[in-house]
């Protein structure tokens, strides 16, 4: 019994999966309230599935990439559930979940690209050979700088929709944000096949913004 959630995109999404099928999903889109809405989403998904928390045998969490503040909500929640319940935590690249959902929506039958909004006029993105197979490491870039690598490819995700001049193959009906149901289903497949998971640690892809004051030197006598 898997409990899956992801806070790396504007969606706050949680789902319960019994190893065979998704039992319930709760998803809201509110880019500023991940911290407030995640636990209620988990609670709602468990209730709708009729599953008690002590039946959960694994936590699946989207590890990003995604804007950091929201991303951390999902990761620290997963780590805390894993510790409190004594169950393993499986990390999955957030873009993989979106790619898998696009495949389920019947949108993709060849190579494609997934891109989410990284803010600051950048996108998080990766290329896929099929909905289960990522061809490149997730990266953060300005759309103009990757135009040659994504030109003409079918594209899904809110990051692609934001920059249609670069992502020329945007699929309007493909998923924009993460769905925990897709994330859970993908994780269940990987568990079944013995595939490897990512450690449940954030994919930030950027260094923290911090300026060392000019002319400042630290001389700390002990």
């Amino acid at each position: 019994m898997l409990l899956a959630f992801d806070t790396a995109t504007p969606a706050i999404t949680a789902a319960v999966h019994d190893g065979t099928a998704v039992l319930a999903e709760s998803t809201q889109v509110d880019a500023r309230r991940h911290g407030e809405l995640l636990l209620p989403a988990v609670d709602e998904a468990l209730r709708a599935a009729g599953v008690k928390l002590d039946a959960v045998t694994g936590i699946v969490v989207g590890v990003g990439p995604g804007p950091y503040t929201g991303l951390r909500v999902g990761l620290v929640t997963a780590a805390a559930f894993g510790d409190a319940l004594g169950v393993p935590v499986y990390g999955v690249c957030t873009l993989d979940g979106i790619a898998y959902a696009a495949g389920r929506a019947g949108e993709m039958d060849g190579p494609f690209v997934v891109a989410t909004d990284a803010r600051r006029k950048e996108v998080y993105w990766a290329r896929y050979t099929d909905p289960r197979t990522r061809a490149t490491d997730p990266a953060v870039d300005r759309p103009a700088d990757i135009a040659d690598e994504v030109a003409g490819l079918p594209a899904v995700g809110a990051g692609a929709a934001l920059y249609p001049q670069v992502f020329t193959g945007v699929r309007a009906h493909a998923p924009q944000h993460q769905s925990a149901a897709a994330l859970a289903a993908l994780a269940a497949e990987r568990l079944e096949s013995g595939a490897r998971f990512l450690p449940p640690l954030p994919l930030y892809l950027r260094r923290p913004d911090a300026q060392v004051p000019a002319g400042y030197k630290a001389v700390m006598p002990k």
Binding site: L38, L39, V42, D43, L53, T77, A80, A84
Partner: peptide
């Protein structure tokens, strides 16, 4: 977020 998850 951690406190909520542990409490829950």
């Amino acid at each position: 977020s951690a406190a909520k998850a542990y409490a829950y």
